[in-house]
């Protein structure tokens, strides 16, 4: 089976110019791959660079070396060297990302926050909203909250909105950064279900999960990030 994601020897470090230009190595020698329908969970202690790796795969952090191969529209693109336009194209039609925190435009209604990724890809507003509604219902966000902007919601509600937004598209790759962190047991179960569903659809996933129980449930493979941790 062809890999959807293939990292080889990827590395990342920050240069902190405001702190006298010290170089802060984050990860190096990152090499692993993910195939369709597989969920790879990154493990390792806080600060080991799990989130950074996820952000590198999404093109949010620039890659300092090595290669991040992404299967995009039938071809492999190296995100470490891609043009901004290519990265945008990859994000539009290949990689979805559920971040830890919801970052939304202040005034936009929850239902539209969730529907947006579909609309961007050409789905009609009505259809996108219908799908968004179904997901929000499944994640137990009461309908009376849908017209409100999510900024006023509790942490758990915001996270569920964020998950709905991340899961709504049918993209072949999904990156999950602590999708269940502030959820109760019932909603955690819903997320696990959603992940199972994505697997059946052949989606390749990379996740960061702290909860051991959830990790057991969703992980097909575990990649220990500790070995990539760059010595300070």
């Amino acid at each position: 089976m062809t890999a959807m994601i293939e990292l080889s020897d990827a590395q990342k470090s920050f240069v902190m110019h405001l702190q006298g230009g010290i170089e802060l190595p984050v990860v190096r020698g990152v090499s692993f791959h993910v195939v369709s329908g597989e969920c790879v969970v990154l493990s390792g202690p806080s600060g080991a660079g799990k989130s950074s790796i996820l952000k590198m795969i999404f093109g949010n952090y620039r890659c300092g070396g090595g290669r991040i191969g992404i299967r995009h529209q039938g071809k492999v693109i190296d995100l470490a060297k891609a043009e901004p336009r290519q990265v945008l194209s990859v994000r539009r039609s290949t990689i979805g990302y559920v971040s830890q925190f919801l970052r939304a435009v202040p005034r936009v209604a929850t239902i539209d926050v969730v529907a947006e990724p579909l609309i961007v890809n050409g789905t009609s507003r009505a259809e996108a909203r219908e799908k968004a509604g179904a997901l929000l219902r499944r994640l137990n966000i009461p309908e009376r909250l849908w017209p409100l902007p999510p900024s006023t919601f509790s942490g758990g509600e915001q996270q569920r909105v964020n998950i709905a937004r991340g899961f709504i598209s049918d993209l072949p790759i999904l990156l999950l950064d602590e999708p269940t962190a502030s959820l109760d047991a019932a909603n955690r179960a819903v997320v696990v279900e959603l992940i199972e569903q994505k697997k059946r659809q052949g989606v390749a996933m990379v996740a960061i999960v702290h909860d051991d129980e959830i990790r057991q449930e969703i992980a097909d493979r575990i990649v220990d990030v500790t070995s990539f941790a760059a010595a300070a």
Binding site: V15, H17, L18, G21, G59, N60, R62, P84, L88
Partner: peptide, 21 residues
């Protein structure tokens, strides 16, 4: 120059880091 979230979340140049911070 670069993707907006890249430049704002992972600024490279001293001046950009200053702006973002």
């Amino acid at each position: 120059t670069g993707l907006t979230d890249q430049v704002l979340d992972d600024p490279r140049e001293p001046y950009t880091q200053l702006l973002v911070s």
